[in-house]
């Protein structure tokens, strides 16, 4: 087996998650920092507070997933990090500097693949690469795109139009597009939510394989408890809205690289699963 559990005693960790995490990664700096984040939507019946006092620190090269009930504000939070949604109060900073609007330092993989259907797979990836590496030659930029498209298993489909690709293949292009711009943070908004379970499993493998190479700090929203355990270093559980905040954080201690089979067979797997489901059903 390719992995061990560093600390079997799950119960003790639940108590003081933050403190333990700081001990566990003393050398790693905080890459993404959310401080006292607040989001208010004005309505005719007064303000609706979606998020309040939300604090979250994500370390460099960490993969965290966020779970919570539908409508609790997960997507709102993610789009605020992406810069697509205004911050009502508080602060979001990447490597110490606060964000101002959207930018290619934060790559996003959307729930729907959001490819331009009139472009080929390669052109879709190029769209971002052209922005990030404007000084490279066209050949260099194309090579970058080809590399990432091959990494997600699309060697034969470079010149296929996005509209001709299946949903799963389109989302592969979406993954390649996000990694190819080499962002500091990768934001994933339920990227596999619209796929059937077989394709979903395949794409989780594709994602984690490319992530193992690139180690880009990632924040991913999911509804799928198994997906969260398989992919992440920490699972962040959000309370139900309004005024949603972080309810609990569960560190997943499986060593990387992980294999799905080994994770499923591990003795702690069901304890993790029970913890998450208990929280969601609470």
């Amino acid at each position: 087996m390719g992995f061990l559990v560093k600390n079997g005693a799950l119960e003790t960790k639940k108590m003081e998650t933050k403190a333990i995490l700081q001990e566990k990664f003393p050398s790693k700096e905080v890459l993404l920092d959310l401080q006292n984040l607040k989001k208010v939507y004005p309505t005719p019946n007064g303000d609706y507070v979606v998020l309040e006092d939300l604090n979250l620190q994500v370390k460099k090269e960490e993969f965290i997933t966020i779970i919570g009930h539908s409508g609790c504000g997960k997507t709102t939070m993610l789009s605020m990090i992406a810069g697509l949604n205004e911050i009502s109060d508080g602060k979001i900073s990447v490597l110490g500097s606060s964000i101002k609007g959207p930018g290619p330092d934060r790559g996003v993989i959307f729930q729907s693949p959001s490819l331009m259907p009139w472009m080929t797979a390669l052109e879709n990836v190029m769209l971002g690469v052209n922005q990030v590496f404007p000084h490279g030659t066209k050949k260099e930029r194309e090579d970058i795109c080809r590399y990432y498209l091959s990494k997600v298993g699309l060697e034969g489909a470079f010149d296929k139009r996005a509209s001709e690709l299946s949903q799963g293949m389109q989302q592969r292009v979406g993954i390649a597009r996000a990694f190819a711009i080499k962002p500091k943070v990768l934001l994933l908004d339920e990227p596999f939510g619209m796929l059937d379970s077989l394709t979903r499993g395949e794409l989780q493998d594709v994602l984690i394989e490319i992530w193992n190479k690139e180690k880009i700090t990632a924040v991913m929203i999911t509804h799928d408890v198994d997906e969260a355990i398989f992919l992440s270093d920490r699972v962040v559980m959000m309370t139900s809205g309004p005024r949603a905040k972080i309810g609990d954080i569960l560190p997943i201690e499986f060593q990387r690289p992980r294999s799905r089979k080994a994770v499923l067979a591990h003795e702690d797997y069901y304890a993790y699963r029970k913890h998450l489901i208990d929280f969601l059903e609470h």
């Binding site: 697509l84 930018g103 996003v108 959307f110 331009m116 769209l127 971002g128 922005q131």
Partner: peptide, 24 residues
Amino acid sequence: DYINVAKVLKLGALQKIFKVILPA
């Protein structure tokens, strides 16, 4: 979605118009 992609990639105004908005 297309507009969001253009925003995240920080496409310039002309690129946004000619590569995203007009074809769409």
